[in-house]
Design a protein around this nucleic acid. Structure first.
Lengths: 210, 210
DNA sequence: ATAAAGAAGTAACTATTGTTACAGAGATGT
DNA sequence: ACATCTCTGTAACAATAGTTACTTCTTTAT
């Protein structure tokens, strides 16, 4: 754990804090597709990502989903932080997008470190800032763009996160994450293929680089 | 200033912190409709609302707007906080919705107090939590609801913020804030009137209570 | 008093997105 | 090899939202 910790957070935190983290943090490995937190659950610890990626989702009244953003290594979950502090329930669902390694920090430590370490405070504020901006980005996409543009953005983002230009997923999956229907996704994917942006095959979509 | 400060933040902060705020804070009065911060501007101080209300807006590439949420007394702007700390530009526009009184706190103090006062830390985290949830709410509205439902929510929220059940505004104004067109708003308002939810007059909309 | 500007109502049309239904292609299990 | 299930493609249609155009009614300015 210590090496992965140093690699991802070494430049951010002083060695004293790194030691504390290594001391009280619990390493957790979550395989792709597994749920990390569910809407309505209480959060008792805060995750620091070491590797992999996590997708963060919102749910509507019918149980349908909408992708908010991805967390990657070096990130933490702003939502979780506020939930920890405020003792409130989670407003979001988090699912491992890839096999993921994270360090779980108990809530009390989080509060303690915020008073004690300036670097930790900065990290927490930075995290909020990033997450906030990602939410604004999500709002931009939904409010200002048509579904075809949202779809292309989504595909390119997914390529960035998974580091593979061929995505192994189904149209139905994409429809869930964009909160639309499978038929619409198939239709627009075909349109994007005709435009030369992507190549379609069963269970796979190759996204052509820019 | 001291009385207004005590009234809004007296239960939140210890008296030592309240004194510091009164000491370094600068009272600012912003009349209705006046701009407080513009997209792309740097932020050098952080606002604490004493009275009134502020609307926070996002802009698309064509210069059209979208209302994100309102800030009310006792609130502060999460965006401003992160901007202050990170020395980045504002991602949003803020305009006084009502005549508004606020205390401006210099950035350096903010950083200092976060290390020094536990109550200040809690306030900052609480603020983030609220703003985050409001953004999620906004996303829910845009992604999960039709324009007629968004419109009714908007009207009711406006009633809450202004504390008047008759809104003095134009259809065009509403269209800007919901990022749609005047014709659509007129159409849906008429529909809501027929449903008995509101009563329409020139420059005014009476929202019937639930 | 009259012209001009602003606000609202409405019709007709277009564009986008969502829904239903069905067919064919590919994978999987026995 | 066969039945079954999953995934994709498409057509046809419905619902929602955006656009253009024109009218009427108020308010404001000269």
């Amino acid at each position: 754990m210590t090496e992965a910790l140093k690699e991802n957070y070494g430049t951010l935190f002083e060695s004293e804090l790194l030691e504390e983290i290594a001391d009280v943090g619990v390493l957790k490995e979550v395989p792709e597709g597994h749920k990390i937190i569910e809407i309505g659950e209480y959060v008792r610890s805060m995750p620091l990502l070491l590797s992999g990626a996590i997708k963060v989702l919102r749910e509507d009244n019918d149980g349908d989903e909408l992708l908010l953003y991805f967390l990657e290594k070096g990130d933490t979950c702003a939502m979780t932080m506020t939930c920890c502090m405020g003792q409130t329930k989670s407003e979001i669902r988090a699912i491992a997008e890839l096999d993921t390694q994270l360090i779980m920090i108990p809530v009390q430590k989080m509060e303690e470190w915020t008073g004690k370490y300036r670097s930790w405070r900065n990290f927490v504020f930075e995290s909020y800032h990033h997450r906030f901006n990602e939410l604004l980005d999500t709002i931009d996409s939904i409010a200002f763009f048509n579904m075809d543009e949202r779809l292309l953005k989504y595909l390119r983002n997914k390529v960035k996160v998974t580091r593979e230009d061929t995505l192994h997923t189904t149209h139905q999956e994409i429809a869930y994450e964009l909160h639309t229907s499978r038929v619409v996704v198939s239709r627009l994917l075909k349109k994007l293929e005709n435009l030369g942006e992507i190549e379609l095959n069963r269970n796979s979509i190759k996204v052509n680089s820019l």
